[in-house]
């Protein structure tokens, strides 16, 4: 089983499903996803567009309702908790979004936006708000003068650092980061990655990292789940999944995105075509693009263990 009910997990997702009605048909954005995240670990979720990874992030934070399944945080079922009761828990789980410029109200000064999250802290008083905002800015290496500006006057990298400082203001146990570097220049993404790694050390923070950028996932994650069209196709320790990928999709993805590999690309793992907008089929979702596709792939595929902690949704995969 991919999510052993170990009593120690901070976050547990069981058979989560999220469907949207779209143009008559239903889109299964998240289709039976299960995972568990241990305290203090960085769990990476990799996928491209249509994989459902961003929807998963929002499900975990109850920013959109589950269609089916269960989510538990810190030992407590949260999917059925009404918003009023859940509100207090929000200080323990926060999210950082992809585009820092969109994450801040353009009409609010930065300091006011920080205050919106500082007030989540227990023992918060308006009097100390200004000082705490200054401390938050300093903790991510920024000059407090930046607090008096509007978001449009701050560079992307600095704004993303402020966004992280803001989301950490309430000292959450879990931080979900959704594509934290994708809107930023490549030369700056290291700044964000290193900042998150430092914060994890300093606060014993648990991080769920959603990204399509494999370099970032590789740099940060302890464990990784690869998603394709709403399902997890491979899950396991980061080193295993990213160095010795077992699923054809993971292999194709790695080959397409690795700078070093591009120079020496053999093309053997190449995925044909692109994501089709077909409705969910019962068999393997990669059928029309997989270089190894066979008749048996039309049957429902489930996650099966490969090695210790490493599972893959492909009957052909070998360690």
């Amino acid at each position: 089983m991919s999510s052993p009910l170990s009593g120690t997990a901070l976050l547990e997702v069981e058979e989560a499903e999220k469907t949207f009605p779209a143009d008559g048909a239903t889109v299964r954005a998240v289709d039976g996803v299960s995972l568990s995240v241990e305290p203090g670990e960085i769990f990476g979720v990799v996928g491209e567009s249509g994989s459902g990874k961003s929807t998963l992030a929002r499900l975990v934070l109850k920013l959109t309702p589950l269609t089916a399944g269960r989510i538990s945080f810190d030992g407590e079922r949260i999917d059925e908790l009404p918003e009023k009761r859940f509100r207090e828990r929000r200080r323990d789980m926060q999210i950082v979004l992809q585009d820092p410029l969109a994450s801040f109200d353009p009409r609010w000064k930065i300091t006011r936006s920080m205050g919106e999250f500082l007030q989540l802290r227990s023992g918060f008083t308006k009097a100390t708000a200004a000082q705490e905002a200054v401390a938050a800015a300093a903790s991510v290496g920024l000059d407090p003068a930046i607090l008096d500006r509007y978001p449009a006057q701050v560079s992307g990298g600095q704004l993303q650092r402020l966004s992280i400082a803001r989301s950490l203001a309430s000292n959450p146990k879990l931080l979900v980061v959704d594509e934290p570097t994708s809107s930023l220049d490549v030369s700056i993404r290291g700044q964000i990655v290193n900042l998150l790694l430092d914060e994890r050390e300093a606060r014993q923070l648990t991080i769920v990292l959603i990204s399509h950028d494999l370099s970032v996932v590789r740099a940060m994650s302890d464990r990784v789940a690869v998603m394709y069209r709403g399902q997890i196709v491979e899950i396991g320790p980061a080193a295993d999944v990213l160095e010795r990928p077992a699923h054809p999709y993971t292999r194709g993805l790695l080959e397409a995105t690795s700078f070093a590999r591009r120079k020496a690309a053999t093309g053997s793992a190449r995925l044909r075509g692109e994501l089709a907008d077909d409705e969910a089929c019962t068999g393997c979702r990669l059928l029309d693009r997989c270089p190894l596709a066979e008749e048996r792939c039309r049957e429902t595929q489930s996650l099966r263990p490969l090695t210790e902690g490493h599972e893959v949704r492909c009957w052909k995969a070998t360690a």
Partner: peptide, 25 residues
């Protein structure tokens, strides 16, 4: 928009979001 999502993540009520973020815009 993302900043409204963030406000919800911060536990702001509907009234606070409407009057603080949406109506001014």
């Amino acid at each position: 928009s993302d900043y409204v999502i963030m406000a919800r993540a911060a536990g702001r009520s509907t009234r606070q979001i409407l009057f603080g973020h949406i109506l001014p815009n």
